[in-house]
Design a protein around this nucleic acid. Structure first.
Lengths: 335, 335
DNA sequence: TTGTACGCGTTATCAC
DNA sequence: GTGATAACGCGTACAA
């Protein structure tokens, strides 16, 4: 490997001058800058990051630990957002995936510490509560899409209540008055908060118990969540006879579309449909295209990095705030 | 930050002994090991990776450059596979995402070089040909899900011809004799190869031109690929009247299911359906569940790392081989 | 089994 | 503007 000293020799200057050129420090004669740059090119020199890190205080490394995040298409965007913001701020993200079979956060955190990461972002697959050991307090840490069971970290989560509230309001504005909510597993935070928003919107409009219906489209058997949208949707459509259906996720909206068609109705004309996620290509591929509340994963990823950097500047480790990021309606054709 | 010397002082040994304990070198008195470990715990010492990398030849870092890979749900698995294998082999993956707006592979490669990565994996979003500058030859490099236009790198791609061949054979075995192939954009390598496999299987069964029909479900307008499965499927179903349809991707199979139902047919009973991808939850959510050729992304990711390490061992930089990874049929209920 | 001298490639300090 | 020299935290070689 080519070192700074070899470059110095070829360029005919001291190695410190080479260092100045490499780091773009001011105060080097343009003539020498040229000589050094020529030598660098000739030898194919690359600065050794590790050696530089030994001396510098700033490593510019941020650790990103993901709880299976990168296998979940919807929330891959978190990683993308974090990476983009990190790049803009001159930081490098070191990404680690938790092994679902033996999830040992602490080991990965250890890895980040050894690399002298300046902070950690922990991203979860879905909005949930997670328990962290004390080792996580060694560095500024930001949680994304989850909260700590001990509530001792800065968390960035989607504002699910606002999402439920907003989309319901939109349905009501458009004149729908008999709304069924096919909600996710009620154990999930998102499901609870969306339901609260849903009910709040209905109340504001003066609707009462008989005007809405809530069902769950997920059943948990042996720790596995199974999707029962098809049966539930058919049942609700037949018995409750809604004029609009709010669905817990885009994927399940596929089943809902089928159920509606099978009963001879037309989505968007006879029955309005709304959903949550804006999961990649699914809303566009459905006919009519699905109007859905987009979960702001990309923005959350960006925010995580910028919040982390703010924490470091103000050196306020103990910021235990909850950042709720608003969800936007992707308005298409289904209601 | 705590250093090895401070640990040595507390433990009452020389810092070299601490180094031995940390690196698990043999030949330290158990008594001293205990003393050192106690001191490490007490001080909260973490080895400084950067400092160690300066001295060691092996950095154990592999660079992973992804062409928007991590936003594509189907191929996120490549990253996951690479990460798992890297972890098993004691390597750390440094992940970089290409910015789709200004894709500059070389800059990210430079970054990897500065970190003294031992090799590079370049992953693409879909099976395609990519052009690389000469800088990519400074390190052992493996391409995943793409090939080089100059054909000068080791590539790992799905065996799309085998996939097309195998699934068609299965359709034929089950007795289907009038098969429509709703293929992807014919500019895509995968589409071409699958079609070859499709035709090969038909020929082997002695079927002729009138027994199959090939249509494309993607239209390119202004550099954007738009999905026209719905119209195409309805047309093909009405005019060609197939007894089975092979679909280019799971997502489009959703449209196909709708088209089939609207014409009063039942998927799996009246018309068999097969597809490509095994894209997350989509095959399971459809009714009946979709039988589809799974693209072996996870395996490809694993293979990329192991091949890279093999290249390094044999120091055969110029291996310009094409590794085709077989696809497996996920047999469900749709044919 | 343990410790010392030295070097890795870089940045920081300060004198020239 | 420039260049010695020290220092960073650790591994290697070899001596004790």
């Amino acid at each position: 490997m080519v070192t700074i000293k070899q470059v110095a020799e070829i360029a005919g200057v001291s190695f410190k001058t080479v260092s100045r050129v490499v780091n773009k420090e001011p105060g080097v004669k343009p003539q020498n800058v040229a000589k050094v740059e020529k030598a660098i090119k000739k030898l194919g020199y690359r600065p050794n990051r590790a050696a530089s890190l030994v001396r510098k205080k700033q490593t510019n490394i941020i650790g990103f630990i993901s709880d299976e995040i990168s296998t979940t298409p919807a929330s891959v965007a978190i990683l993308k957002g974090a990476q983009d913001m990190a790049w803009e701020k001159g930081k490098t993200l070191m990404v680690f995936n938790l092994d679902p079979k033996k999830p040992n956060k602490d080991k990965l955190y250890e890895e980040c510490l050894q690399h002298r990461a300046e902070g950690i972002i922990y991203g979860a697959m879905y909005h949930q509560a997670v328990t962290f050991s004390d080792i996580f307090k060694s560095l500024p840490t930001v949680l994304v899409n989850c909260i700590s069971t001990a509530d001792d970290f800065l968390s960035i989560v989607p504002d699910d209540e606002q999402a439920g509230y907003y989309v319901t309001k939109q349905l009501l504005y458009k004149g729908y008055r008999r709304i069924a909510f096919l909600n996710l597993n009620p154990n999930i935070i998102a499901a609870q908060q969306r339901q609260r928003g849903f009910l709040k919107a209905l109340t504001e409009f003066g609707l009462n118990n008989s005007d809405y219906h809530i069902a769950t489209i997920e059943k948990v058997v042996d720790d596995k969540t199974i999707n029962i949208t098809r049966e539930v949707a058919e049942d609700v459509l037949k018995t409750f006879k809604p004029d609009a259906v709010l669905c817990g996720k885009d994927l399940a909206a596929i089943n809902l579309y089928f159920a509606i068609e099978r009963l001879g109705f037309k989505v968007g004309k006879d029955i309005g449909v709304a959903s949550f996620d804006n999961w990649h290509d699914i809303p566009e591929i459905l006919d009519p295209q699905l109007s859905t509340m987009a979960l702001p994963y990309y923005e959350m990823g960006r925010l995580a990095v910028s919040q982390l950097l703010t924490m470091k500047q103000t050196s306020s480790f103990t910021t235990q705030t909850l950042h709720k990021v608003s969800c936007l309606l992707c308005d298409r054709k289904s209601f």
